[in-house]
Design a binder for these strands. Structure first.
Length: 850
RNA sequence: GCGAGCGUGGUGGAAUCGGUAGACACACAAGACUUAAAAUCUUGAGGACUUAAUGUCCGUGGGGGUUCAAGUCCCCCCGCUCGCACCA
């Protein structure tokens, strides 16, 4: 038996020599196309188990589809702009570019050692000017089509580092490096008009029927279309009004306060003459910009002197507050609070002693008075305490209230989206420069096409705080393309989601000096199967859907939806280990003895913690390279798909890996056993009943094929184990069994090839088959071996299993019934009584109701 | 806080349509081979209770419901995980 590494190297070399996985750019061929894509990695240093899982899943699909005769596009590249390169630069004083390129080199070799069937000639890296120059042009096209614009928006500002922080860099309201209290600041930034496609992005979700339902739901909720009303409240002694958006205009009579966002124009104007309000708004501005943080914080407000008039009854006066939970970005930046029917409003009202008047009463309410204590009622019901709305059901009352508001010219029906425009400006170095020049006279002028790309300067000062592009002495100086006046370049770069929003298009035509040819994109797109982590369920996938539409509007291609099929894989988890005083330990340093864990070096006892997602911070990582070196990549691949279904989280376990390794070794032993023997008989001519192994072989073809089609790869592996067990028990001294064994091994090689391609080639070759198994046509089960004549089903009495019966296919219900009733256990249960009913579900179950 | 998902033996999981729960594997135990170990092969097993019969009861996070029949459908609850717009 040869060394696994040599075996794998041998076949990788063969694939290379044959260019087995490269795809022709000639798209006029007759084979149907199939585009399988895994989310490309950020080159963080080394591949981790999450990558191994992701790319194994994709490779199974790619290899399977190839053998089914598809023209398969299966590319790989690098999402190589991003914050970690800048962090690494600060930590180790290495240039982001150098760090990134080194990582790519390492990771490319690691991926290549896994024998993944990529067309490496299409490799792309987004930090290359040759990639990002196209998106600079795209941005200018968006600008010209009105899909990009500039506005002010809030950022997390670290006053010590003088830099903008990502939400993840703000920990408990402080900068992660400086530990300074983070402030909110307004910056002028570029936005893409995603809201223009809000309706389309929402309405097209039903077409994405090869996406997981949960992702479609998340996207729907994210877009968040709400029907309601914009309502104007007049302010006492002032001429302006407060415009409020509400989905519950039916509860207007229950309004007990109005709350403004801290950044609402009225809040700002009030703060000018009121110190308390100014302090409160300042306090709110110390909050993070993260919605999760804002929502988790204690709900607080400050009362203003303003009183608003109720739109239906000017005599009702409602106090106006400024509250920390009202977002300027959503709706109109102001709400009316109806505490009885909204939990957040109720908490607020109870805190500030505001009245709670119920205006919706449950339909079946019997008692005399409906009272709200500390739980808001948000269900269905009829309106009470509301004059002209009384006795109407909620939905009717909404319509009536809106009608009245319109009659009074105090409001109108309105749709509000949760979806916001996409802010793409980042105050960072390691990203694609935004191709704009700010001229004092002409304003923001796009860099002319001939001057693209705007490339990043290499000589940057990493010690300097703030954005290195901004502090660079010369880079930002440019002449206005219009008036030639000395001007300043835009020093912000694009959000790195920009690159990942069109990389799948570049893969369809990666070498031409244009982003991609429309012809190629139209042929390959949409991606037939996209595979990646569920953490991208909303942002990346929604940005890409928007981007594709925007590119279509600019004439780049003619499709709207980039991803036809989506598979979201679960995380790779592992047990954690800690010392007595709670510091994390690497699993590789630990040995298990008598159900206790000890440090390898010192023999100190350590303790196992929860099973958690593999992460560097908890040290519960297993390095894929160590595994590949020890067991070979086929072992890692088989293990990755064998235990857990792809969409679920999986646990990495050493014993599981050992199991996969043993399985592959068993296969190699089997070929050693048969490859010196002669095969003589055509097994397809054998009759089926005498040879259960033949039936098993054909069942396996059927089961594995179906399993791959519906992503039950773990079941496929189980079926391969079963098939292996069956054929390993065949007797090589019996001529017929030997021939079935040959045949079974050949089929096994083919069924195995998407999962453990190196071993599959080895078996294929040892059996003396022509060519490479990766080019062989996928086997088809012979129907005559699939039909089962003997039916074996359970018999229940009152839904409980009491026995089993066997009959031949085609027996009548009467025959089945008498067979069932003749079972001793059934007779026992019936105890002489006559069954009330007998339910026979053909070939499934008999249930006798006594 | 809001949105989404998940929960089945000692462990990972299977059960495609509501129809024999626990396939396949890991771990475990016994046996074979071996001077021995490893490797390999064979066999066993959800839990409890017995009168030890191929017997009864319980069993898919907990509680309730629909149905001849529920891991699967509905309602409530518990636990864990993911996302929340500047991580990718």
């Amino acid at each position: 038996m040869q060394n696994k590494i040599d075996l794998e190297k041998k076949w990788q070399k063969k694939w290379n020599e044959n260019s087995s996985y490269s795809v022709s750019n000639d798209i006029n061929n007759n084979r149907p196309k199939y585009y399988v894509l895994e989310m490309f990695p950020y080159p963080s240093g080394n591949i981790h188990m999450g990558h191994v899982r992701n790319y194994t899943l994709g490779d199974v699909v790619a290899r399977y589809k190839r053998s089914k005769g598809y023209n398969v596009l299966h590319p790989m590249g690098w999402d190589s702009f991003g914050l970690p390169a800048e962090n690494a630069a600060k930590d180790n004083m290495t240039h982001p570019e150098k760090w990134t390129k080194k990582n790519i080199l390492t990771m490319r070799n690691q991926l290549k050692s896994m024998g993944l069937s990529y067309d490496w000639s299409r490799e792309i890296s987004t930090c290359e000017p040759n990639y990002y120059k196209f998106e600079q042009k795209m941005f200018i096209d968006f600008l010209n089509k009105g899909l990009a614009y500039k506005k002010e928006s809030w950022v997390n500002w670290d006053p010590v580092e003088k830099t903008v922080l990502a939400n993840e860099q703000v920990i408990d309201g402080r900068g992660w490096r400086s530990n300074a209290i983070v402030e909110k600041r307004l910056l002028s930034q570029w936005f893409l008009k995603m809201t223009e496609y809000a309706d389309d992005l929402l309405d097209s979700i039903p077409e994405l029927n090869n996406w997981p339902e949960k992702v479609r739901l998340m996207q729907s909720n994210w877009i968040g279309k709400s029907l309601g009303a914009n309502i104007n409240f007049r302010i006492e002694k002032r001429s302006d009004v407060i415009e409020v958006f509400s989905t519950r205009p039916d509860t207007l009579y229950g309004a007990s306060f109005i709350a403004l966002a801290p950044s609402h124009p009225i809040s700002i104007s009030l703060s000018k003459n009121n110190k308390d309000i100014r302090n409160f708004i300042e306090e709110c501005n110390k909050n993070s910009t993260s919605e999760a943080v804002i929502e988790k914080n204690e709900k607080k407000g400050i009362k203003t002197d303003l009183l608003a008039s109720h739109p239906f009854d000017q005599s009702i006066k409602i106090p106006v507050y400024i509250a920390n939970f009202v977002l300027m970005e959503y709706g109109t930046g102001a709400i009316f609070g109806c505490p009885a029917h909204d939990q957040r409003d109720l908490d607020f009202a109870n805190k500030y002693n505001l009245p709670v008047l119920p205006v919706v009463q449950p339909h079946n309410f019997k008692k005399t008075k409906f009272i709200i204590n500390d739980r808001a009622y948000i269900g269905e019901g009829v309106i009470i305490n509301s004059h002209f709305l009384n006795n109407l059901p909620v939905e009717d009352a909404k319509r009536a209230a809106i009608k009245k508001l319109e009659d009074l010219k105090s409001g109108k029906s309105s749709i509000t989206w949760r979806l916001r425009d996409w802010g793409v400006s980042r105050q960072r170095y390691w990203g694609c420069p935004i191709p704009i020049i700010h001229c004092e006279d002409c304003g923001d002028i796009p860099v002319p096409d001939v001057e693209l790309p705007v490339t990043l300067p290499k000589d940057i000062d990493l010690n300097f705080s703030g954005n290195p592009l901004d502090s660079h002495p010369t880079w930002k100086i440019a002449n206005c393309p219009k008036c030639n006046k000395t001007s300043k370049r835009e020093t912000d770069t694009f959000d790195t989601f920009f690159e990942s929003s069109w990389y799948f298009l570049r893969f369809t035509d990666p070498i031409n000096n244009m982003p991609f040819r429309e012809k190629n994109a139209n042929y390959w797109m949409p991606v037939d199967q996209y595979i990646g982590g569920v953490e991208h369920a909303v942002l990346h996938l929604l940005y890409s859907r928007f981007f594709t539409r925007a590119l279509k509007k600019c004439g780049y291609l003619s499709i709207s939806e980039p991803f036809k099929g989506l598979m979201t894989q679960g995380m790779v988890c592992h047990q954690t280990f800690k010392t007595k005083d709670g510091s994390w330990l690497f699993p590789k340093d630990i040995v298990k003895k008598n159900n206790k864990y000890f440090l390898k070096n010192t023999n100190e006892e350590v303790f196992s913690g929860r099973i958690e997602k593999m992460s560097k911070s908890k040290k519960n990582v297993v390095d894929p390279l160590t595994i590949v070196k020890k067991y070979g990549s086929d072992t890692a691949r088989i293990f990755m798909v064998s235990d857990s279904p792809p969409e679920r989280d999986m646990e990495w376990s050493n014993s599981g890996v050992e199991g996969s390794y043993k399985f592959l070794n068993k296969l190699l032993r089997m070929i050693d056993e048969v490859n010196h023997l002669e095969k003589t008989i055509d097994v397809n001519s054998l009759s089926l009943n005498n040879y259960p192994a033949l039936i098993k072989i054909h069942r396996s073809i059927q089961d594995v094929t179906e399993g791959i089609e519906r992503f039950s790869f773990n079941v496929c592996v189980a079926k391969l184990y079963e098939l292996t067990n069956t054929i390993s028990r065949l007797d090589v001294d019996d001529t017929i069994e030997l021939n079935i064994k040959f045949y079974g091994l050949k089929i096994l090689a083919q069924l195995l090839s998407p999962f453990a391609p190196h071993h599959a080639e080895e078996i294929w070759f040892s059996l003396g088959q022509e060519g490479l198994v990766c080019n062989a046509k996928w086997p088809i089960a012979n129907e005559k071996f699939l039909v089962e004549d003997n039916i074996n089903i359970g018999v229940q009495v009152n839904g409980k299993l009491r026995g089993k019966i066997k009959y031949t296919k085609g027996s009548t219900n009467n025959e089945i019934e008498s067979l069932a009733l003749s079972l001793p256990a059934v007779k026992n249960q019936l105890d002489g009584k006559i069954p009330k009913r007998i339910i026979i579900v053909p070939e499934r179950i008999v249930n006798i109701v006594a």
